[in-house]
Design a protein around this nucleic acid. Structure first.
Length: 547
DNA sequence: ATCCATAGCGCC
DNA sequence: AGGGCGCTATGGAT
């Protein structure tokens, strides 16, 4: 049956696994039917949660579970766990970056194109194909968990956008005014910025200098003998000249104005809610991205604007030192797992006399995860290797794989992209008989760069999987808490941190749920291995009060 | 007018 | 000479 204009193509799989198919002719109709059928706890199967769920949410219908075929396809097409891989498609409905047609008005920023119409038949066929791929895969249990978590994440992303992050325009405006001066009426710079520009121009004797232009600024700095090679903050900080102080202040404030000033506020905040466009799986490692609004880069400066509604609190929870804990679990490193059995893994390294200070512990651990070879981190590495051979061995091995151009895979089965054709070409060139020293240097550098990427990929990617499991478990608990009333709601997610907006009376329950969900995520992914995932929780009225 | 690369800085 | 991003402004190219 051909899809009608605007039809919502969605299949239904019942909890006993038996497939049923349905066909509805409008989102309004579909939302109503789906709401009725939720009591059977089906898993809804559709092409693209991002494109389709928003329309359902507009009818105040929330769904418990789904299978997002686009996100699942992307994982399965790349996964080394799937021995019979799905084809990687350059175009067609399941290709990377393809948008699915929506039948509702996007609230902000229009989609560039209408996107592809996908028929119900295509949805059913693709779902069956994915099921078979998972069934035939090694580690099918892990893959199944990953696809479920990824799809739950897609539901959460759409729900968070629908709900929005509580945002006080008044507080935001007050902060901007305090930092920058009053909002200028028709563009132009606020008073405080204008004053700084005057100071900078005077100090450099450049009456018409525009400090927003790097090249202009650099020329002025040079011709005035300030001795700067770049206009980077950390370079300027080292110089001694009267212009430095106002210049650094200007750059800081100009950044605030352009990235999160009044224009940003009027673009992204409506009716006291900030609604960013989350993109689950938007990063190669599986982390989320955002499109517009910069929701994952909310500067600390303005976090006070995130405020709970009257009678509500924000439960801000973050996973403490998530990546080292993930590494310990992946590597089955008993010794490092021991360090995880407390709230502060870095301090545990000091207590175990692995390193002498907490700062060193942090530098060393991040160095291991990112592949530092020199400086303080490089210096501390032998210590870490000696005490934690399994954990450090795992990231080393991932790095070596990358250097050889091989693919690495996260714990649950998301695989790294292969290096580009250009990368391979550079490596081939270096092994040719007439290769010069430059060719070899270049090849080694690129190999090491890719090794650092794959080294970090396995840990960052697995941490992203843990975070999805954590959120999915938290979401389930929050739904149970709500009953029929408006309950606590997930309103923000940032890699290893969530914010729940909760009625004040329920905050204790939410805090418990956050901890329970973290334990559950650890068990789901790593079974009984004794690694702990410590959570830091703050119940606050505004985001700035946390941490 | 529109696209693209780069610098710079925000977050984890 | 540490991984992953998004966003803005700039400036050159088309």
């Amino acid at each position: 049956m051909a899809p009608a204009e605007g039809g919502l193509q969605v299949a239904r799989v019942d909890s006993d696994g038996s497939p049923g198919t349905v066909d509805w002719w409008s989102t309004a109709d579909a939302a109503e039917r789906m709401a009725e059928q939720e009591r059977d706890r089906p898993r809804w199967v559709w092409a693209d949660t991002r494109a389709l769920y928003a329309g359902v949410l507009l009818h105040s219908v929330r769904l418990e579970r789904c299978s997002d075929l686009r996100l699942s396809h992307a994982i399965l097409a790349g996964s080394t766990y799937a021995s019979v891989a799905l084809p990687v498609e350059a175009d067609g409905p399941w290709a990377e970056g393809e948008a699915v047609a929506t039948d509702f008005e996007p609230t902000l920023l229009d989609r560039a194109s209408g996107g592809a119409e996908i028929s119900l038949e295509e949805v059913v066929v693709e779902h069956r194909r994915q099921q078979q791929t998972v069934h035939a895969a090694q580690e099918s249990g892990r893959l199944r968990l990953l696809l479920a978590a990824e799809s739950a994440g897609a539901l959460i992303a759409a729900e968070m956008r629908h709900t929005g992050l509580p945002w006080s325009e008044q507080i935001h405006d007050r902060q901007l005014t305090a930092a920058l001066g009053a909002r200028p009426l028709c563009g132009g710079r606020p008073a405080r910025l204008e004053a700084l520009v005057a100071q900078i121009r005077e100090a450099l004797v450049a009456p018409s200098l525009n400090p927003d232009s790097q090249s202009e600024l650099l020329r002025a700095l040079r011709s005035h003998g300030v001795g700067a090679d770049t206009t980077r903050q950390w370079e300027l900080e080292r110089l001694d000249h009267p212009v430095i102080e106002p210049l650094l202040e200007y750059k800081k404030l100009a950044r605030l104005l352009s990235a999160n000033g009044w224009v940003w506020m009027s673009t992204w905040v409506r009716d006291g809610r900030f609604r960013p466009d989350y993109v689950p799986g938007g990063v190669v490692t599986g982390r989320w991205a955002t499109r517009g609004g910069g929701a994952l880069q909310l500067p600390r400066q303005i976090r006070a604007a995130v405020t709970a509604d009257p009678g509500h609190r924000l439960v801000v929870a973050d996973a403490a030192q998530l990546e080292p804990r993930i590494l310990a679990a992946m590597a089955r490193d008993e010794q490092m797992a021991k360090a995880s059995q407390g709230h502060d893994l870095y301090q545990a390294l000091v207590d175990e006399q692995v390193v002498d200070t907490r700062a060193h512990a942090k530098v060393a651990m991040l160095g291991a995860l990112y592949g530092a070879t020199s400086g303080e981190a490089g210096h501390l590495m032998p210590r870490l290797v000696k005490v934690y051979p399994r954990a450090t061995g795992l990231v080393e091995q991932a790095a070596r794989c990358g250097e050889r151009g091989e693919i690495v895979t996260t714990w649950l089965g998301r695989s790294s992209p292969p290096p580009s054709a250009g990368w391979h070409q550079v490596q081939r060139r270096a092994s040719e008989i007439d290769a010069g020293a430059g060719d070899q240097r270049n090849a080694r550098r690129q190999a090491r760069d890719w090794g650092r990427f794959t080294r970090n990929f396995v840990v960052q990617g697995t941490a992203a999987e843990w975070a999805l499991c954590w959120m999915a478990g938290l979401r389930r608990r929050l739904r149970a808490m709500a009953g029929d009333a408006v309950g606590p709601e997930l309103v923000y997610f940032l890699h290893d941190e969530v914010i729940v907006h909760a009625p004040a009376a329920l905050t204790d329950q939410v805090v418990s749920a956050v901890h329970e969900a973290a334990d559950e995520a650890g068990r789901l992914m790593f079974g009984a291995f004794p690694v702990e995932f410590a959570i830091t929780v703050a119940c606050v009225d505004n985001y700035a009060q946390a941490k």
